[in-house]
């Protein structure tokens, strides 16, 4: 099994918590039908609760939306400090391989310029532990620019993440990330 870490861990915890709460609420509501009561008696409190719930949920969504503004993976949202000259790497995807360097440095920001020669492909980077750490689509006639910094050296896997035809599941290759100069 792949270790659960980073964003995946956050997502997993959030989803399990939400699911547990929802199941709990449903269980409680379903059990309540053993003690029937008049609708008028229930609905007043229900409408009050609905109002609080609407406010709470609305606030939560606005907060989540605001938070994402600072964390989107797009070039325009990169902090100014990260916009120092990056190493430019061109990736050309085609049925069913990637044309790109097989060795890249760790610790240095890389500007991936990703495009495709034929159909839509995905460009997904999996860490040596097998965790999906970043991805971008490879589309014909367009170039998607993704900034990414490999945090640690090791053998990464590049995997196509958009169904691209009969050889789709074979479309993966390894990428060696070597230690940054001056480190080690």
């Amino acid at each position: 099994m792949v270790p659960l870490e980073g964003k995946q861990l956050v997502i997993f915890v959030l989803w399990v918590a939400l699911t547990a709460i929802v199941i709990g609420v449903f269980w409680w509501v379903m059990r309540s039908t053993r003690r029937p009561d008049a609708y008028d008696a229930v609905s007043k409190g229900g409408y009050r609760l609905r109002k609080s719930w609407a406010w709470f949920y609305g606030t939560l969504l606005i907060a989540a939306f605001a938070a994402t503004l600072w964390t989107v993976p797009y070039a325009w949202a990169q902090p100014a400090a990260a916009k120092r000259p990056a190493m430019v790497v061109t990736v050309r995807a085609r049925q069913f391989s990637f044309s790109m360097p097989s060795r890249l440095p760790a610790g240095r920001q890389i500007e991936f310029r990703v495009t495709s020669d034929d159909v839509n492909h995905g460009f997904g980077i999996y860490s040596p532990q097998g965790v999906l750490v970043a991805q971008v689509q490879a589309m014909p006639d367009y170039t998607n620019v993704m900034y990414f910094t490999f945090s640690a050296p090791g053998t990464y896997t590049i995997r196509c993440l958009e169904f691209c035809g009969v050889g789709h599941s074979d479309m993966h290759q390894t990428l060696t990330v070597y230690p940054a100069k001056g480190s080690v």
Binding site: G6, I11, L132
Partner: peptide
């Protein structure tokens, strides 16, 4: 709930097409 998590851009980064 799962859709909302996936529709959040920084999470979609690691969920898209999985």
């Amino acid at each position: 709930a799962a859709a909302m998590l996936d529709a959040t851009i920084p999470f979609n980064d690691v969920l898209h097409n999985t």
